[in-house]
């Protein structure tokens, strides 16, 4: 009996645990805005930067003129201003379109059901939540490390059930940097905001300030 209860308690505890993101420094309450902004900065932006870096590294090897399953390049280097690639190397944002907008600056756009965000995956396609975003990434440093350093500007919208939607943006832009040995971006500076609307009316506003390896959330429930 005691063993059974103990085992069930352990299982319940494990089920309730969730892994923190890269920049976990806050244990604030599970406000929707905070949760979404954390997902934005720990999942969505790194996915975009990974897709971009994979494409740039691929470009380095001189195979940019080849179309294959992961990169549809049109035969133009991604470092050429105006070049546009479709990248499938990151599964969560498969088919993301990357366009070189200036020297060392790229714009990424994608629309679909972004899986790290919550939602019901069992529903029909028409009921899935649609997320649409544009990320502009400016390369700050291209040092010989596992990742480059980036300045990221983001605009995202997400539509959900019962008339709920949200708009997320960065202001000021997020700066992602990494140390020499790290395999992930281990520092983020800047701010991200979220507006939650129901039937077009704003009902909640939140802002997350990132300070290196910690963050702080401010909420204004309307």
């Amino acid at each position: 009996m005691k063993k059974t209860v103990a085992i069930l308690a352990v299982i319940s505890f494990l089920c309730s645990c969730s892994q923190d993101g890269y920049f976990s420094g806050s244990n604030a309450s599970f406000a929707a805005g905070e949760h979404y902004l954390v997902l934005l900065t720990t999942d969505l932006v790194p996915d975009c930067l990974n897709a971009l870096e994979y494409a740039l590294n691929y470009d380095y090897y001189g195979y940019y003129d080849k179309d294959n399953d992961q990169y549809i390049s049109g035969g133009v280097s991604l470092r050429t201003v105006g070049a546009e690639w479709e990248v499938n190397s990151v599964k969560a944002i498969e088919g993301v379109k990357i366009k070189s907008t200036a020297i060392n600056e790229w714009s990424l756009s994608w629309k679909g059901d972004y899986r790290p965000f919550p939602g019901d995956r069992n529903y029909d396609e028409k009921d899935r939540y649609v997320m649409e975003f544009t990320v502009t990434a400016e390369m700050i440093s291209e040092a010989s490390r596992n990742h480059f350093d980036w300045k990221v500007k983001l605009n995202a919208t997400r539509k959900e059930r019962k008339g709920y939607a949200c708009t997320m943006a960065t202001a000021p832009d997020l700066v992602y940097t990494t140390s020499t040995k790290s395999y992930i971006w281990d520092s983020c500076d800047g701010s991200a905001t979220i507006d939650v609307t129901k039937d077009g009316n704003v009902i909640d506003f939140g802002r997350m300030d990132y300070m290196g390896q910690s963050h702080r959330y401010f909420r204004d429930l309307l």
Binding site: F30, A31, G119, D120, K162, Y164
Partner: peptide, 12 residues
Amino acid sequence: YSHPGDLASQYE
């Protein structure tokens, strides 16, 4: 239970 953690489940 079918929409864990989405906006409606946070505000409804």
